[in-house]
Design a protein around this nucleic acid. Structure first.
Length: 470
RNA sequence: GGCCCUAUCGUCUAACGGUUAGGACAUCGGCUUUUCAAGCCGGUAAUCCGGGUUCGAUUCCCGGUAGGGUCACCA
């Protein structure tokens, strides 16, 4: 029998910005779908009107697009299960609710929220877990949609199931209670809606965070009641905040994913880094293109324990991706991030060697890092002197350098180097020549080498700067 | 607190019972050198603890400890 075509989905709720935790879930679902020539669905779980944050849906789409995680079915694109916003699928959930009612698996909740609160408090006082099913009414009214609809847990048991990442999992009987399927406002709960949709959309692999492990018995019970085979679960380990050991969350310092775009990280690098946070290919490879990730990705190699977000490593990964960029592309990017009056293509290779992300260019520009290529520097004659030699010696060597350079026709860094090195090698220490020259050209204690500076400045400016210190 | 999950260098991880416990980031040192950057070479650094099972445990089992998750008309 042919394997069922792989269908995965990313199903965020529009309650604020995306952070790396959420987007990694999307990435894994995307990779698995692509690897298997399957379908990747984007579904918006907007069943909680209270928590919904305006603009979130666009933000989610923006994040996915930035990283190149194109969805096959979903908002904007449509698909066989259109619409892909849960708030526009309410009739469907009601239909499924009716099926459960008819089968005797669902009933309206007769209690008010206050009454429930009392039950809870009482249970707490008696130091036992609160279970709704202890208060389940004897007979059920007909559901008129004005009251919450509850699932009638058929049997109280320990649940066991298999997870593609964690292996065999269990949950105690407390995990299974009469939970709400449809809320008083007519919207389904997550617990119910996502199952209906996964069934309707033919989802085969559910990638999700491990916060859902303890509610899996509920999901399983619904599948069973509906007589539908559940999908395969692949539970992802948490991503931990950079500092402590806490799960990364919006509360404690998780960054909006688009912040990384603002900071000038490359989407390919972000994808690469995220993929490696909780997964590895089983060999020593660290740098991957999206295509290579699709090839290499295996659910079995997803990690069980949480991984701390390490931005230093992100910087390194990003730098590796910058290095792999074709020269023209990298140049264009660097120029784009440079202030207008500093856009000299000749300094680009120098910049590329010194950054790990594009915004470093901005920062270094603000710090005046490239000024020496545009404005003649201020010179402090004391700094011109090499180690324990003298100012006269420095000036003499610069004079020699000037006359040697003046004869140079082709003013490339290779030629400048050859000339200056030859001069320097006649000295006890060639630093006595090279250092004053470099300092005279740059006015900085730390700078690129004098040869490349000369080439960028050009013969006239180079000689002018050298003469100036004399 | 109940239920559940996890545990290898500071960090991300490799090692499907037998390895001098491997790699990467970070860090430190060296080379190169006129200073930075880059590059190359090298170093420091880990199996949470205690019991089993086994000729042999990072690996399997049990207990402890620590960390995390979850117990909503949130997802």
């Amino acid at each position: 029998m042919a394997e069922k075509r792989v269908v995965t989905r990313f199903a965020p709720s529009p309650t604020g910005f995306m952070h790396v935790g959420g987007i990694r879930t999307a990435l894994y679902a995307f990779l698995w779908a692509r690897k298997n020539n399957g379908t990747f669905i984007l579904r918006i779980e907007d069943t909680d009107k209270e928590r919904e944050v305006a603009g979130s849906i666009d933000h989610i789409k923006e994040c996915l697009k930035w990283l190149g995680l194109e969805w096959d079915h979903g908002p904007d694109i449509g698909g066989p299960q259109y619409p892909y916003l849960q708030s526009e699928r309410l009739d469907l959930y009601k239909r499924y609710a009716q099926i459960l009612i008819n089968k005797g698996y669902a009933y309206p909740d007769p209690y008010t929220e206050e009454e429930l609160e009392d039950f809870r408090k009482k249970a707490e006082l008696e130091k036992r877990p609160f279970l709704y099913r202890d208060h389940r009414p004897e007979t059920f009214e007909k559901w008129d949609e004005s009251k919450p609809l509850r699932f009638k847990t058929p049997e109280i048991k320990t649940s066991a199931w298999n997870d593609l990442v964690y292996g065999d999992l269990t949950a105690g009987p407390e995990a299974l209670d009469d939970f709400i399927l449809i809320k008083g406002d007519g919207f389904p709960t997550y617990n119910f809606a996502h199952i209906v949709d996964d069934i309707e959309m033919g989802v085969t692999h559910v990638m999700r965070g491990q916060e859902f492990i303890s509610s899996t018995p509920k999901f399983l019970a619904i599948y069973e009641a509906l007589e539908v085979k559940p999908p395969l679960f692949a539970t992802l380990p948490p991503i931990l905040a950079p500092d402590g050991k806490k799960k990364l969350g919006k509360r404690d310092g998780a960054k909006d994913l688009l912040e990384y775009r603002k900071e000038g990280y490359m989407p390919e690098a972000m994808v690469n880094f995220l993929a490696l946070l909780g997964w590895n290919p089983g060999d020593d490879r660290e740098i991957f293109s999206k295509e290579e990730l699709i090839q290499a990705f295996e659910i079995e190699r997803i990690q069980k324990s949480g991984a701390m977000l390490n931005e230093e490593k992100l910087d390194w990964v990003n730098n590796e991706h910058i290095k792999k960029l074709p020269t023209e592309e990298a140049t264009a990017k660097v120029l784009e991030w440079l202030p207008e009056d500093r856009r000299n293509p000749k300094i680009v290779p120098l910049i590329l060697e010194r950054i790990s992300k594009w915004s470093d260019i901005q920062k270094m520009s603000e710090e005046g890092e490239w000024d020496l290529f545009f404005v003649a520097p201020k010179i402090d004659l004391e700094k011109l002197v090499f180690k324990d030699s003298s100012l006269e010696e420095a000036k003499k060597n610069i004079t020699d350098a000037i006359s040697a350079l003046q004869d140079l026709k082709d003013f490339t860094k290779e030629n400048v180097k050859e000339v200056l090195m030859k001069l320097g090698d006649n000295l006890p220490k060639r630093g006595a020549l090279l250092h004053p020259v470099r300092y005279a050209l740059s006015g900085r204690e730390k700078s690129p080498d004098p040869f490349i500076i000369s080439e960028i400045l050009g013969k006239d400016e180079t000689i002018q700067r050298l003469q100036k210190v004399l």
